[in-house]
Design a protein around this nucleic acid. Sequence first.
DNA 1: TTGCTATCAGTAATGATTATCAATATTTTT
DNA 2: AAAAATATTGATAATCATTACTGATAGCAA
Lengths: 165, 165
Amino acid sequence: MKPNRTTTKPRMTEQRKIVLSAVRKIRRHPTVDEVYTHVRRRLPRISLATVYRNLELLAAQGLIRQVDFARPQQRYDHRLHDHYHIRCVQCGRVDDVPIDPFSALEYDAKCCGDYRVLGHRLEFYGVCPTCQKRKDNRPPRTQKASPRLVSARVKTVNNRREGAE
Amino acid sequence: MKPNRTTTKPRMTEQRKIVLSAVRKIRRHPTVDEVYTHVRRRLPRISLATVYRNLELLAAQGLIRQVDFARPQQRYDHRLHDHYHIRCVQCGRVDDVPIDPFSALEYDAKCCGDYRVLGHRLEFYGVCPTCQKRKDNRPPRTQKASPRLVSARVKTVNNRREGAE
DNA sequence: TTGCTATCAGTAATGATTATCAATATTTTT
DNA sequence: AAAAATATTGATAATCATTACTGATAGCAA
Ligand SMILES: [Mn+2]
Ligand SMILES: [Mn+2]
Ligand SMILES: [Zn+2]
Ligand SMILES: [Zn+2]
């Protein structure tokens, strides 16, 4: 097959370079906003969107890593005992992992800093059986939230229009 | 001191009971929306806000647990090797935990389901040294984001008012 | 009953992230 | 180099989960 013509390698732009160096300089696991603030010292006109874009791209390239998981929606568990979870990176499904929790780890962590350690969470990630079956690797994306409040009564205020329909 | 007069025990209301039983029935780590949808079959007029409130309260009481961590903002890491983190439950600060990663864990996880295991994350939580010093336990909350875009030029469109001020 | 608080439904506001889009910048082709 | 193709940017709007607010009820104690 011919080499995909619509795909080219990402360029290492000035903005991208500076965003990368910011993450490296700040060190302590910065949030997007912290990166943004830092970068603006050198590029006062950079857009926040550009920071988001470049962070995502740099992470995709493996030049930086995302610390957090489990983004858009919070999940709840009816099981109260300590146990671990595995999350499907494709669809977001979460299942239990029945291996014994080790409290020794918390002890180990003590030696690292002056934190008072309260506990730990261990989460595996992978591809769930359902998503493995699906041949194509189109992102099924985390299921959308249920449509909001299709209540019987409909609001009738302020429904005048400005433009056309 | 006199017993705090403004504080009373939470009541186990009908809504709360049903939210709890929903989390227990759904089993597979439901999102708030899934709980909401489920509960509405029995309480069609319940508010989504009530579901949020009760889930939070039930979790605070230890009747259910939150699965996820690291909520409002994503964080980035300049260190590419596998390592673990510890997060302050008070201020959200994140630090590295310099203990060796257990690659055996992923092997252990394999035996649980049909997931294809890709990796794991281990996160400790506790109270950082800074937050330990602070005597009061007022929630310092995760630091607010930097004020957005106080650009030189100001938008002048559509600043007409409707009511009064 | 009378006050007091908890809780509710409904809805607005918040805030992080994404999407969109016209304008530039860089690379590739001619 | 000029033209065409593609990538990237800044600005801003849209999304969407969550939180905050509000006025109305409900349960409980004096
Ligand atoms: Mn679980
Ligand atoms: Mn780290
Ligand atoms: Zn899946
Ligand atoms: Zn702290």
